[in-house]
Design a protein around this nucleic acid. Structure first.
Lengths: 203, 203
DNA sequence: GCATTTGCCTAAAGGTGTTAGGCAGATGCA
DNA sequence: TGCATCTGCCTAACACCTTTAGGCAAATGC
């Protein structure tokens, strides 16, 4: 009848991301998206293969956005400064965009994952760690540690896990970053002879 | 017509937990459960209020099982030993029962959460940390750190995050536990004058 | 100005969640 | 043992989501 709504994959994915932030990634549905564009459901299937495809695209968007933010955060910083900025980029994104953050955890098939911003995240993590002068395999372990801590904390926090007990999550966050920094700095390194290591390398 | 299947909340929840481990918690469905009991879908609604209720019960089961395992693990251990056993209890459970582990993250309303095994988890975590002689608020921060690391690692690992790169996840896990132990041991403590702290307390 | 392409539509089928009401097997009591 | 009741599973029906097939009209190209 009137003018065409002008759908496109990009618009759908952006709207899907916003929808995710509003109602949660798990509740992102093709039907709801169609409703928002005031369009019949079937119409979306010309732009998106299916629901899984839509979610994958939202996940890719989220991963890319998150990588961009992280990149901005670490640019021009090193060591502890970089670590904090990097960590805050993740946490802030998760707080501001919980649905998108969830989307970034959507399981991707290997090829899609390889073409996603995922590898950028890994490279940035390594870049941040560079300041601590770790050697392999310690650096890889540290990359995984950072991923675990950041993801774990943020996911518990957004699930409300810390909201019903005493110190605000904020304080724990800085305490954890302090601890991580100390931990990484204490790792044996070829360029900085170890003086503070404990039994951390006896396994 | 023949003999009645003999449904009950307990059987449904147990079967639901098994289903979760097979197909993932997100795909646990009232319909599939009915199919497994060779019963019509509506029949389940005499035992369970609705789908959300079913999932909540599975979550409670998982939380309780996990708490039981953790309790067994830390019994009779202290310090680093307790930390490792505690951590391994979580990781092992997640690997053996991925669906149940996911279920344990199902958001519960406050009253349900309070009546769940959740508080037991928190108490056990504090018990494990007792060996490190932390003072408040450091102990609470440490509880949250452990939760974040364990959950983060396990969730990334079961999502396949570590399966496509060099050192096996197992090695990273022990490296992380070593690091955590060192970190906690290095915290200032009233009973153990600090000798090994680095810049961890200069923020 | 016409042909083609593209974009959104109608129609239809299959799956899940949920409620209401019915019938028969199990249970309790005389 | 026989009857009344209760409980447990069933049929029926509706709402919502996903997906596919095929149609019509607006946009586009020449």
């Amino acid at each position: 009848m009137a003018v065409r709504p002008g759908l496109s994959v990009e618009r759908l994915v952006r709207a899907g991301a916003e929808l995710a932030d509003e109602v949660g990634f798990a509740h992102v549905t093709v039907s709801e998206l169609a409703r928002r564009f005031d369009v019949k459901v079937a119409s979306l299937y010309s732009h998106v293969r299916n629901s899984h495809d839509l979610k994958t695209r939202i996940a890719l968007l989220a991963l890319a956005e998150l990588a961009d933010r992280a990149a901005d955060a670490v640019a021009g910083r090193a060591g502890r400064d970089a670590l904090t900025a990097f960590a805050d980029a993740y946490r802030t994104y998760a707080v501001e965009h919980p649905g998108r953050y969830d989307a970034a955890r959507f399981p991707l098939d290997p090829e899609t994952a390889a073409a996603s911003a995922g590898p950028r995240h890994a490279r940035m993590s390594r870049a941040v760690l560079r300041g601590y002068g770790l050697t392999e395999p310690a650096e890889t372990h540290a990359v995984r540690l950072l991923g675990s801590v950041f993801h774990g904390f943020v996911s518990l926090e957004t699930a409300g896990g810390f909201s019903h007990s005493a110190p605000p999550a904020e304080e724990t966050w800085t305490w954890i970053l302090d601890a991580l920094d100390a931990l990484l700095a204490a790792q044996p390194s070829p360029t900085r002879p170890d003086t503070t290591t404990t039994e951390a390398d006896t396994a």
